[in-house]
Structures are given as structure tokens and as C-alpha cells.
């Protein structure tokens, strides 16, 4: 399973635009992702990759760019 492609696709669907050219941009700062969208992201990642990503684990400094989300998912899949 290509984690990177899958995560990008999930993010694209939630945000509603293609983010593959802004893999290191902070999506909280740019306002692309709000708390609502964040929960959708966590739920989608949970279903797609069968990982446990509870709300408390979600630290806005560790999850704020597409690349960091990919890294997190990979580490949670361990």
C-alpha cells in the first residue's frame, strides 16, 4: 500500500483542492484544515490504515503538514 498516495488523496478529498504541490505547507496556518476537517482526517486514517489515532495524540505541531501526516501514519503503522 502506498501510504503517501493514499494520505494525499484523503487530504485532497477533505480539503477540496489538490495539495500535492504543498507537501510541507502548514495547513492549519493557511486555514485549509479546521477542527472539523481534522476529525474527518483522523477518522479516515483510522479506517484506511487500521491505526489508532485518538484526538489527544493529535498534536498540532506534529501533524501540520501533509509530509508530517504521512510520517505519523507510517510510525503508527509501525
Amino acid at each position: 500500500m502506498d501510504v503517501k498516495a493514499e494520505v494525499v488523496e484523503i487530504l485532497n478529498t477533505i480539503i477540496g483542492e489538490d495539495i500535492s504541490d504543498q507537501m510541507d505547507d502548514d495547513f492549519f496556518e493557511s486555514g485549509l484544515l479546521d477542527s472539523m476537517a481534522t476529525v474527518e482526517l483522523l477518522l479516515d486514517l483510522e479506517t484506511k490504515f487500521d491505526i489508532q489515532a485518538p484526538v489527544s495524540e493529535f498534536d498540532r505541531n506534529d501533524w501540520n503538514t501533509p509530509n508530517k501526516v504521512i510520517a505519523k501514519v507510517e510510525s503508527l503503522m509501525g
Binding site: S35, E40, L42, L43
Partner: peptide
């Protein structure tokens, strides 16, 4: 983090409402 997101998480997971 402790009210809003958890409420949304619970409502979405248990599909309380169709609409986002």
C-alpha cells in the same frame, strides 16, 4: 480539543447525522 473535536468524533463515528 476536549469538547468540540470529541463530540464531532463521536457523532461522525456513530453516524448520528448524515450531513457534515
Amino acid at each position: 480539543d476536549f469538547v468540540f473535536m470529541r463530540l464531532v468524533f463521536m457523532m461522525m463515528k456513530n453516524k448520528w447525522f448524515k450531513s457534515r
